[in-house]
């Protein structure tokens, strides 16, 4: 079973997204970018990252930068799952190496289809 690291400061969003994925994937959680970095620093294997953009402590774009700088995860797909609609943020994520951008609220089937396509 593939592992997905879901990073979002909203407990509700984490619960709902995890609920949609739990049938087919092992879902790990972190409530901000720094917590996610701490998790992968322990050697946790991750097959795909699912990141919110606006988060306290460390936002999703900064986390994306760290992920892509890590040789272990440089090629790991990263999907941004956010309410953020500003074009410049999306462009920044693309430049930093994000794989895709999904706007919340999203249909679980759309998300699952994207994950199946990437994993």
């Amino acid at each position: 079973m593939k592992t997905i690291l879901l990073v979002d400061d909203s407990t509700s969003i984490r619960n709902i997204v995890k609920g949609s994925l739990v049938r087919e994937y092992l879902v790990l959680e972190a409530d901000n970018g720094q917590a996610a970095l701490d998790l992968v620093a322990k050697g946790t294997a991750v097959d795909l990252f699912l990141l919110d953009v606006n988060m306290p402590v460390m936002d999703g774009l900064t986390l994306l930068k760290h992920i892509k700088a890590n040789p272990l995860f440089a090629k790991t797909p990263v999907l941004m799952l956010t309410t953020e609609t500003k074009q410049e943020r999306r462009q920044e994520a693309k430049t930093l190496g994000a794989t895709g951008w999904i706007l919340k609220p999203c249909d679980p089937e759309t998300l699952l289809a994207a994950l199946k396509n990437l994993l």
Partner: peptide, 13 residues
């Protein structure tokens, strides 16, 4: 200038 994207949309880069 930018048109707002559709809610729930998925854009793969």
């Amino acid at each position: 200038d930018e048109a707002p994207p559709r809610v729930g949309s998925l854009e793969l880069f």
